[in-house]
Design a protein around this nucleic acid. Structure first.
Lengths: 210, 210
DNA sequence: TGACGCATACCGACCGTATGGTATGTTTGC
DNA sequence: GCAAACATACCATACGGTCGGTATGCGTCA
């Protein structure tokens, strides 16, 4: 099972496996409560491999956040919510997509970097910053559509595209917190329903009772 | 400094000190990263006192969540946002109050039970449930005003007072996550501005550009 | 009233284990 | 044959938790 390195394409296999294992275990147990051995066991590699690839547990935390940023960027970039021609439709499709992917166990859909940021924001600025880059890098992908939609429709109000993009993340992250506290994924979906309603109201799409 | 127990009114002093220390340290470092010794040092008591009052570190976590629930309940019950005669005004005053108390260091205004719930939701159901009771017990205090305001004003829409009350918490908690990730309290205040705008729109208070 | 006994509050040394990290060896591919 | 990719054994420490002990206040009963 170990070291399936046969040809070069498999090279660096343990590193990826460690990052994936870290993602899964940390999402369930949190960063501090996750030991290096936990991650090694989940990745089916030894501690030697771990410290060969990562200088320390904190360094893995940073790498895990960056890995998260890369994989989620790819995931969202290829998601179907970009299809609508109208930018506002794309924004609403994004919210609907975020809601649609809330399925299965909590640890499968909650946000690694949101969880880690809450935990280590004071203990490890490096990890915190890596988490911040991941989160705010993602929100930035929404800004252009929001700004375009706002201009297209002549919307005026004392809010910016940047702040609304961040707010989507706040609602999503807050929904995850409530879902965990209540042990019920529906609480996360519920928050997104309110977000959808809010965005529609900002863009005057409010058909009464909708 | 230790054991100021002279008369009975001081009795149980160490327990309170431990709970207050736990609150402060855990808010800054997270539950798992906080050691029993950390808490003892912050409370200026010994480990003997700790395990005299709490059967385990997890038991302290539960007690800390309950202590948080008690103290915050008292704090919000005596807060000035209850003053307005109109229930909707009280709701908006609540949001403004939540924004107003976001001052100082992150660890001073963020939510203990939100942080803990994220961390231990899978590892310790006892702590998670205690956190859930604290959070949802607080949201429940808003429901009556929301429901009354809704009826008074004949508001119709596919949302309930309960879900809107929960949503306020989601926005608050999400704001905290973003504030930590970005190391900027303003991010939490920004989320509350959007929440204020959302509530006004639900109750048709939206004067354009406000 | 005061000596006694007892429960509670708290202290501080100690224990077994798990943890992050290291040093050295071994395999693999180029 | 050399460097990178792992494995294995090991170390020092920090951790949660235990245990025997001490101090303090309070009820009680002579």
């Amino acid at each position: 099972m170990s070291r399936p390195t046969k040809q070069s394409p498999e090279r660096g296999n343990a590193r990826i496996r460690l990052l994936e294992a870290a993602r899964d275990v940390i999402r369930a147990k949190g960063f501090a409560a996750t030991s290096v051995d936990d991650i090694c066991k989940a990745a089916d590699v030894t501690k030697g491999a771990f410290f060969h690839h990562f200088g320390s547990k904190d360094a893995l935390g940073v790498a895990a956040a960056e890995f998260w940023a890369e994989t989620t960027t790819g995931f969202f970039a290829s998601a179907p919510y970009h299809d609508p021609a109208d930018p506002l439709e794309r924004i609403l499709a994004y919210v609907a997509f975020r809601k649609a992917i809330i399925v299965g166990d909590l640890a499968e859909f909650t946000c690694l970097v949101g969880t880690m940021a809450q935990e280590v924001y004071a203990s490890s600025p490096e990890i915190r910053n890596a988490c911040g880059r991941s989160i705010f890098g993602h929100t930035a992908t929404l800004e252009a559509d929001i700004e375009t939609a706002r201009r297209d429709r002549g919307i005026r109000g004392d809010w910016t595209a940047e702040s609304l993009a961040r707010h989507t993340q706040a609602v999503i992250q807050g929904g995850f917190v409530l879902a965990k506290a209540g042990n019920d994924p529906e609480l996360a979906r519920e928050a997104l329903d309110h977000l959808d309603r809010y965005i529609r109201s900002l863009f005057h799409l409010t058909e009464e009772a909708a």
